[in-house]
Design a protein around this nucleic acid. Structure first.
Length: 403
DNA sequence: TTTACCGTACATCAGCACAG
DNA sequence: CTGTGCTGATGTACGGTAAA
């Protein structure tokens, strides 16, 4: 393992030819020697911790432990097997297999290392290594949570010149003014098919109304979008909070309110993790971060009241299964990377063929998509969705950019 | 022991002044 | 006008600490 020059050009050039990860302020080039496992364990831990940071944003923010992902991969997918889909995987196993695919892309040589027969019995060693990755996952998630915690208050309203009423102080540590306790955040949390009024908020707080991850919250949708039972898809993921938070996390906090492609400096997260296109999991990560940030939950937890962040995450990921939602990804790619982005990196479709047990949100969406296709296939084309900036299937919607 | 949070160190860039 | 160097701003990684 050797150091390479830390300049942007060198790093990017190196990235074209060989795997490279940034460890702290240093750039490390992994040349395969790491698999020998005979050198500095501490620096290896740093490498894995750093990779864990990338994995939080691209793979899984900690809903499944790395060790489980690795053990499943080792136990279920023989290294030399061409056919990895011999037996049907459960939904959970499928997601873990996808996570494994992301992990092996982020950490060059990781797959070979794990499948090396010499390491087959080193379970404790694997556990330690996975712990390092896990630590990185927690670091990144925690950093993003902390970063969004106050910044997001400035973007709650689509029009940032309008004052938030009642105000939430920018230095208010306690989040009790958010969530269902504030009309603006409560409205953003309210499922689209629920009336966003005080009555609903009170009912949710009292537990009379359950808001679960099967319901798409309003913040996912473009402002002003109204509920249509037969079309929950148009305008989905076009919410201003989603767009701003995605930019905040991947292009840096100063990019949140800027136009497409803006990135101050060269060391934004997207570049650090070599991300050139948005992925469904990256978008799902943003969604759970936003959900947590506007809730009144003080500590990161996978469940807030009846709302499971984990389930929400996987529902968002499932939305993009089978290559669906490409128009949404195109839109975000344009917002993040502008016109000059390069199509490379971790953009590969990591979703396997999903089978039966889809969450209900996804099932609804699929049914609606089928209906929509049927309508489009009909001889007379119906009118386009009214008003809202529902992206067409043809092209991104540059005009959707927030000011 | 694990996790979340916070403060600090470090890398990088943009803007500016200045010399040639 | 162009190149160079300095400085402040920005953003992330990481170590330390407290709490669960």
């Amino acid at each position: 393992m050797s150091l390479v020059a830390p300049t942007r050009e060198d790093a990017l050039a190196a990235a074209q030819s060989q795997p490279i990860v940034q460890v702290g302020k240093k750039w490390r080039c992994t040349d395969g020697d790491e698999s020998s496992g005979n050198s500095e364990d501490d620096s290896d831990e740093d490498v894995y911790r750093s990779c864990g940071r990338a994995f939080a944003r691209l793979g899984d923010p900690g809903f499944v432990k790395i060790f489980q992902i690795v053990e499943q991969a080792i136990n279920m997918i023989p290294e030399d097997s061409e056919d990895e889909n011999d037996r049907e995987l459960t939904e959970r196993e499928t997601r873990m297999a996808e996570s494994w695919a992301v992990l092996t892309k982020i950490i060059p040589g990781f797959k070979a290392l794990m499948f090396d027969p010499a390491n087959a019995t080193r379970r404790l060693w694997r556990r330690k290594l996975c712990k390092s990755i896990n630590a990185g996952v927690c670091d990144a998630r925690s950093d993003d949570t902390a970063g969004l915690k106050f910044k997001i208050l400035n973007w709650l309203l689509e029009d940032i010149t309008v004052k938030l009423l009642p105000p939430i102080p920018n230095d208010e540590e306690i989040k009790s003014l958010r969530g269902w306790n504030h009309p603006v955040t409560a409205r953003l949390l309210t499922p689209l098919d629920y009336l966003a009024d005080d009555n609903t908020y009170a009912s949710v707080k009292a537990g009379r109304v359950k808001v679960t991850a099967e319901m798409w919250p309003r913040f996912l949708y473009a402002e002003g979008r109204e509920y249509k039972p037969d079309d929950e898809e148009s305008g989905l993921f076009m919410g201003h909070l989603m767009i701003r938070a995605t930019k905040h996390i991947f292009m840096g906090p100063s990019s949140a309110l800027k136009g497409p492609g803006y990135c101050r400096g060269t060391h934004c997260n997207a570049r650090r993790i070599n991300m050139n296109v948005i992925t469904p999991r990256a978008l799902a990560y943003v969604a759970v971060q936003v959900r947590f940030a506007i809730s009144d939950a003080e500590k990161w937890a996978t469940v807030d009241r009846q709302f499971s962040l984990a389930k929400f995450y996987w529902n968002v990921v499932a939305f993009f299964d089978d290559g669906e939602g490409q128009d949404v990804l195109d839109f975000y790619n344009h917002e993040l990377f502008g016109e000059t982005r390069q199509l490379q990196g971790l953009s590969d479709d990591l979703s396997d063929d999903p089978d039966s047990n889809r969450p209900s949100a996804s099932e609804r969406m699929k049914a609606q998509r089928a209906q929509k296709r049927a309508r489009l296939a009909a001889p007379t084309t119906p009118a386009a969705p009214t008003g809202m900036a529902a992206p067409s299937t043809a092209a991104p919607v540059p005009g959707m950019s927030v000011a």
